[in-house]
Amino acid sequence: MLASSASPVGATGPAGLIGIEGRVGVSKPDPIVVADGIVRRFGGVTAVSVDHLEFQRGAITALIGPNGAGKTTFFNLLSCFDQPQEGSWSFNGTPLRGVAPHKVARMGLIRTFQLTKVLSKMTVLENMRLGATGQRGERFFAGFARSLWSRQEQEITGRADELLERFKMHHMREQFAGQMSGGQRKLLEMARALMTSPELVMLDEPMAGVNPALKQSLLGHVKSLRDEGRTVIFVEHDMDMVFDISDWVVVMAEGRVIAEGTPEQIGQNQAVIDAYLGTNHDKELDGDMGNTTPGGPSDE
C-alpha cells in the first residue's frame, strides 16, 4: 500500500484516507459517492439531514448510529429507492436525483436490504442467476431462442456456483429460498448482490442474525471485495465488525452525521460515545483502542 503520510490527491482506496482529518463533511481524495444537502422528512419527522458527505472509492466505510438514526433511509435515498425533499447526490460523478432504481443498479451501485428480500418461491440457484446483469435471454423475443442465451446461462451458473461455494451455501442450491433461515437469507442476498459484479456494494446490516463462526468468514469476504477494487459501504450494529474491517466510519444520530473518521478516531470521539456507544461501552472501547490494532482477535 502507498503509505505516504500526506495522502496524494487522487489516491484511491484505503491509502487515500491516511492522514485525513476526522471532521464531518471532510473531502476525500477519490470520492465515489458525494451527497449534498440531503433532507428526507416523513411528516414532521426529519429522518435524514446530511449537509455534505463523501465516500472514498475502494475503501470499506461503516455507517453506524443508534436505532432510528436514519441509516436505512439514507441507504434508500442514495440507491434511489426513496426520494428526498431536498438535496443532490452523485455516483461516479453522475447525478442520481430522479434516476430509476434499476438504472442505478445497472450503473454498478448495488444495495441489500435490512429486511431481506430473497425470492422465496425461487430456488437458491435461481436467485443467484437472477443477479447477473446484461443477460441476453431477458429480452422478450430472445427468450424464445435458447441458443441465444444458453452459453451465457452456463457462465452465469458457473459464477453462481463459485459464489455459493464461497458463502458455504452450495449444498442448498436446489432448495427454495423460502425454506432458508433468516441468517441464510442474509447470506443469499449478499451473494446475489455480488452476482452483479458491482462497483459499489451497500450492505444494510449484513451480520444481523449470522452465527459467529460464519461471521469471521463473511468478514473475510467483505475484505476481499475491497481487495478486488470494489467499494463497500455497510450499516452495522456489531462494533467488532465495524472496528475490525472498516477503513472509515461515519456516525449518524437523529438523521445527522455527527462524526466521521478512522475507527481509532471514532472510538475516542466523546460525542459518539455519548450519542451511541454509551457510557457502558467506553471502558471496553478504550481497552480495544489501546492496542492500536483494530482487527485483532475479538473476545466474543
Binding site: F81, P101, A105, I110, F113, E138
Partner: peptide, 17 residues
C-alpha cells in the same frame, strides 16, 4: 425468471437492475 422475481418482490428485482 425476471418476471417471476417481479411477481414476488419488485424491489428485489429493481435492486438487481
Amino acid at each position: 425468471r425476471v418476471l417471476r422475481s417481479v411477481r414476488e418482490n419488485e424491489d428485489a428485482a429493481r435492486s438487481l437492475g
